[in-house]
Amino acid sequence: MRTNISAISKKEERYFYLFISPWIIGFLIFIIGPIIASLYFSFCNYDVVTPPVWTGLQNYKKLFSDPLFWRALKVTSYYSLLSVPLGIILSLIIAILLNQKIRGLVWFRTIYYVPSVISGVAVSLLWMWIFNPEFGILNFLLWKLFRIHGPAWLMSEEWVIPALIIMSFWGIGGDIVIYLAGLQGIPTELYEAAEIDGANSWKKFINITIPMMSPILLFTLVMGIIGSFQVFTQAYVMTRGGPHYASLFYVLYIYQNAFQFFNMGYASALSWILFIIILLLTLLIFKSSPLWVYYESTRER
């Protein structure tokens, strides 16, 4: 009897591997394979058509003397540094407002989430119209409401990144939903106890809401930073990296090198540097998390 069971379980194990094999094979061939290949190419001179030629560290050396590499890094960091925290603050505020007990709440929640459903190229084209300095609705409103002559937005070296940051708030619906779920998971007795102790709204927010939400904030911070370092569509569709390299995002620069200039080796080196940057930032955030992230389950220990 016992041998029978183990035979069946072995058979089941085989079936497990059989059924999961499409994924495993796909993962090995289409994810791990290219990753290893790109590491190799990053040490080569490779234009995709002719065979790669090993050049050692040359691509990495070139990278540090390439002004556009530094430009792309600066543009991306600037965007990331502003868009991620602002996005988190804004979506947290809206989530808190949507967590109030008022009439028609379901409608508000839907309205705030709806923009996240549309994404990518369609949104980029829409915002190109909004930002048009001469005919766009944004500058029209600035003039009608505040008598301000709006900037040239996407056509201005100074304003193109702020414009794209404003545009990034279009997609905060996803974060709002996550925050709402988090807010609803905070036990009401914590607030009640604080009220008995005489805490005002601000104190409750700082001492209860923020600590209880901190694991979720950590998650959105990490995802936000990774996402912001991978910005591509907006720049590719709306600005092509311009004007004058002002929106040359890192991934756009990789794309240009890989698929437009056919410097696949150099593009691979750029990709590995990006991977290391994101990895270091993520590690840094995780290392710092014990200082500011509060896990209920660890309290008793």
């Binding site: 040239a152 056509m155 201005s156 070296e157 990296g241 311009g242 004007p243 004058h244 390299y245 240009q256 437009q260 200039f261």
Partner: peptide, 21 residues
Amino acid sequence: FGFYQLQSVWTSETDPLWLGK
């Protein structure tokens, strides 16, 4: 040879001229 990359450089470099800067 390699025209597109050269063109993309001069397109970026002339942006400030067409923007009147």
